[in-house]
Design a binder for these strands. Sequence first.
RNA 1: GGCCCAGUAGUUCAACUGGAUAGAAUAUCAGAUUUCGGCUCUGACGGUUGGGGGUUCGAAUCCCUUCUGGGUCACCA
Length: 591
Amino acid sequence: MNIQNTIETKVKKGFLTLYNTEIPSVEFQATRKEFEGDITVVVFPMLRYKKGSPVQIGEDLGKYLVENVSEITNYNVVKGFLNLVIEDAFYINFFNAMYSNSTFGFKSANENEEAVLVEYSSPNTNKPLHLGHVRNNLLGYSIAEIIKASGKKVYKTQIINDRGIHICKSMLAWEKFGNGETPASTGLKGDKLVGNYYVKFDQEYKKEIAQLIAKGKTEEEAKKQAPLILEAQQMLLQWETGDAHVVALWKTMNAWVYSGFDVTYKNLGVDFDTLYYESNTYLLGKDIIEEGLKSEVFYQKEDGSVWCDLTADGLDEKLVLRSDGTAVYMTQDIGTAIQRAKDLPDVGGMVYTVGNEQDYHFKVLFLILKKLGFTWAESLFHLSYGMVDLPSGKMKSREGTVVDADDLMVEMTTTAKEISEELGKLDGYSDAEKSELYETIGLGALKYFILKVDPKKRILFDPKSSVDFQGNTGPFIQYTYARIQSIIRKADFDYTNPVTIELHDKEKELLKQLELFPETIQQAAANYSPAVIANYTYDLVKEFNSFYQNVPILGEEAQDKKIFRVQLSKKVADTIKQAFSLLGIQVPERM
RNA sequence: GGCCCAGUAGUUCAACUGGAUAGAAUAUCAGAUUUCGGCUCUGACGGUUGGGGGUUCGAAUCCCUUCUGGGUCACCA
């Protein structure tokens, strides 16, 4: 069924027949546009097994293939590249086979295969989500969808960092300065309200520090002795001992934040299958330390602290338990990973979507889990991504230079509205339909802009000019989709049955691009890169636009060709939709 | 300072993981299309892949070295 596999087998056989030598594999690539042919065999690697002129070997193989593979009609050799021409019938058959397959390219989850857990988002509950979280969420959601489409069961999860000194800061500031404000009384989103008090704390704290310094303290002393920070620390202790008042306040304020996050997640279009709360997991991991000590993965220092020596692996020594017996971040993460493997027994691998500033942390975490001997520890992946910078520099939440996630989405939607109204093709759309459309376009632009870039690279985000609506952008692709829908609406004849025609060059190119979709999904999953999907989709759209410009569709006179072209257009539209669903981007019927 | 990541047209990004003359978009310029939606298409211009060595049939990709930018090296999370 796959032409490449067929050819590979034949090439191997041909090589054996011609030179009496076996070759383990054959290297392929798409034929460059300037040469005749559809698929290319690279001859150079074969020189290892049979010395000689690559051109001669190419000629011999080409001749053999034309004689022995019915689908190959012609060949030519350029340097060490053997270009093969595939007959139209092969592409037509391929098209007819996949035309009615609505999940073309997607593999359904194999029950026997291990599931993958994808963690993303994982916010603190003391402030709203910002642009950095947006990249995290989009990446995490998208990679989960891609892995799912590649044929694995996926669980989406996040760990909510709902406890700790940072939460106490917001709580304390609200108690002191809040006058009983609530989201209901202020009309603010819960996460925004709580975030304001986090900022408030910092402002007041700074004042206190300044006062103490004026009284002759050093900065370091002042930071440690300011009454507010002492109170916050006190509050954290009370929380840990289960103080009724503090716990009640904590629950109330966290509930506000969660309802705020829910709105943001819904607008972003992301979701989760399971949730973990740090307040439930922060004590995990200690018992593992005991076991690790017995199996000598860890060792104890004289003061009682426990360490893992990773110097043999080129890393440092890492603390896993404090001398007072309390846990550190690493302890928690070890415990949480193990807990998840217990909760979801079919999980065989985990993906952590976390920024690249934690590269070292995850390297250490994975190594420790391996040393502890967990089988799934071999399949852990840190989906590390670069920062999102603004033209004005880095985002700092305390300095108010963050781009808020909610504001950003509103801004994108507004821009989409302005542009769409200018072009005005929306007669007959209700206001509700219109605003839904603007959201589709605005978010499409944002998501595509962020996802088309390799995760590892940092992004410079200019809200004003970076998000374009032309060229390699989400709206450009959405537009192409909408235009195809327009054609389909106008196709008022029966085009359901398969036809056989002679292919136009543009049609053949489009079919080749469609054929790549399944392997593109696999590649994106293997590389943990939504960018692979984004770029594929863009290439498909470009190929379609070229076809659209050069070949009449509804205007074609020959009935069979007309039918085929409508089918082809429809399949392109379906594939765009499928591909975009992997990026979490919707497509409009009209725009 | 040690370790990690990035460096590709003016700009934003690619390059099937070592393959052909490094490709798109954008911007600029020139054209096509009274036609299925003028958010379309076709050209032109634009490159010492940060620099220098090496490995081989062949390097943006692998190795060494060097420069620039970022991150990280807490009994913080």
